[in-house]
Design a protein around this nucleic acid. Structure first.
Lengths: 338, 338
DNA sequence: AAATTATATGTAAACGTTTACATTATTTCC
DNA sequence: GGAAATAATGTAAACGTTTACATATAATTT
């Protein structure tokens, strides 16, 4: 393995000068630069990043922590994080917390040992605070949260705007002529689900429609009784003519029940989900949904990380980004063909 | 940042002894081990992996290269590679070639600079040989190919057994009573698609059914003419009563045409795809398919990598693993209810 | 042309480990 | 109990860079 020392020897220059050529930044004559590069080329020299990392204290490595890799939202985000950071000369180390706080803690410790320059993380469901990140922060390692945010000031985060997504989805249904819109709600303990419900209610109000609490129903796909209640709701007179589900799986479940009851979609009931899961396009009829812009979230998280890393003074104010989602309209909610 | 030196000073022991405690392997008294660990704990010492990597030449890092991260087959494989290698004390660096040979080459060079101990790679579509991996091999870096194999001896690889998957899928259709089975074939230039066709034909022969070349049809989903030809084939007398598609998308396309022609699935035509894409379960009816066991492939690739890394003598014979796929039977091909 | 300044290069000490080799302490054996 | 063997610890030199500081060289000023 040839090293900078070899290149220095070959060119008659000093080790320092050779190093400067590869750092790019520092001043070095165009002539010596060429000499060095040519010699390096000939000797097939490749700089050892480990050594550079050790000496400089900068590994140009970013840890990316997600609960689990092969879930659409995470793999898409990772995809754009990777490509964005690679362009900037960083590489990423992927870790999975498996939704376990303890494992997440181990991973963060491990990343600290690896001298990562930053950590982009979507926290586990068990994670309620940033205590286990204290050491990272103390070590001056930049942190960006994405998708799953902790409700904390002073921490960089990127999430989609759940309120706005729900608002837009509900508004879309209203525009398609729906007047009695059911909301299949999520657990109200989860903030993003509360946001979605708020968006739904806000849209109804803004369009002069009543908010009927019976129309907000936390469907449980596992419970036959819960499914029965949905059947019951759909057969009332007047019957609901629209459904906004807080997640695509719930919309899918409702879709099956609508078929079972011989209700036409979207003519009798228009329906829209949330998440724009890959399967939406394949349902019969294809399901409208709110796109979570996972790639954009990843890109933005990477962007913020880079800013953070380049900011010389470490006194940046934390940026809390909310990306507005996009309503993807498919046949399940498309009544008008304007 | 406290270092081993600090721990040594605090315990009155030498740097070497402290190092040995953290290496685990070497001989050290239980008593001193405890002393060191306690002091380390107190000083909040964390070993600097960069330094260790530099000195030892082993980074305990594996590069994982895939064409693109957020495709099911790759994200699932990455998931199990990560969890398996992490257990063994390695971490992975993820890279995307974007199906470009040139980018793949840059990535490999980069990984070389990073001193990775091994590379697990699913090559780009443009990659036909291992020329750009020569340097890695020369540097003694272990390589394992997965999913996309190069047809080379002497290289570790893990793929599913396409022949067997196709054979089993076709056999399943035959067992369900199909006698005139259409094969929606893939490009015969691609070896895995040829394998699938071979499996199909072999199954027919083994069950005494004729292999009709008109029944092997390379459907092009983009071409209306091609779709028309499928319509034509399905309306012949006698009509096909089964379809084995080389990919799920093609099965999905066929499914839509069957609906359009008012043919019942699976009563009139049973259908099965290949890949077991996530959307299969959501189609109406749910689509049978051949599972590619992505996680198993990933796990096995990781296993082989670990063997390779632990093998002191580097004279292991390359292992070429073929994982038999699993036929996932859903409503689209389930005629009998035994 | 000397003095000043700016620019390019050189010197050498880090960075925090691992590890070959040397030394000391401990056990075993006769 | 002392020699021989074994086990534990210590010493110090790497590993391949970066970078503060010193020096040499070139450009500018007076």
């Amino acid at each position: 393995m040839t090293t900078m020392k070899d290149v220095a020897k070959a060119t008659g220059l000093s080790l320092a000068t050779v190093s400067r050529v590869f750092n790019g930044s520092e001043k070095v004559t165009e002539k010596t630069r060429k000499t060095v590069l040519k010699a390096a080329e000939k000797l097939n020299f490749r700089p050892n990043k480990m050594a550079a990392a050790l000496r400089s204290g900068k590994s140009r490595t970013i840890g990316v922590v997600v609960p689990i890799i092969d879930i659409d939202v995470f793999s898409s985000a990772i995809k754009s994080i990777e490509s964005y950071l690679r362009e900037a000369g960083y590489h990423i180390i992927i870790c999975q917390s498996e939704e376990l706080l303890e494992k997440e803690g181990q991973i963060l410790e491990n990343l600290l040992n690896l001298q990562v320059d930053g950590v982009i993380i979507s926290v586990s469901k068990e994670t309620l605070n940033m205590n286990h990140m204290q050491e990272l922060q103390d070590a001056g390692i930049s942190i960006v949260l994405f998708d799953r945010r902790l409700e904390l000031e002073n921490v960089n985060s990127v999430i989609i705007n759940n309120f706005s997504g729900a608002y837009r989805a509900t508004t879309h249904l209203i525009e398609q002529g729906c007047r009695r819109i059911l909301h299949l709600a999520g657990k109200s303990s989860v903030s993003i689900f509360r946001e979605r419900q708020r968006g739904y209610e806000s849209a109804l109000k803004d369009h002069g429609l009543p908010v009927d609490e019976h129309y907000v129903f936390p469907l449980d796909l596992e419970s036959e009784a819960s499914l029965d209640h949905l059947r019951y709701l759909l057969q009332q007179d007047p019957a609901p003519d629209g459904i906004f589900a807080h997640g695509d799986y719930y919309a899918f479940g409702a879709l099956n029940i609508l078929k079972e009851l011989n209700l036409r979609v979207p003519e009798d009931v228009a329906i829209i989900g949330f998440g724009d899961s890959p399967f939406c396009a394949y349902l019969t009829p294809p399901l409208s949904s709110v796109n979570q812009r996972n790639e954009d979230i990843g890109r933005m998280a990477a962007e913020i990380m880079l800013q953070e890393l380049n900011e010389a003074d470490h006194a940046r104010v934390a940026s809390q980004s909310m990306i507005p989602p996009e309503v993807i309209i498919r046949a399940s909610s498309q009544r008008l063909t304007d």
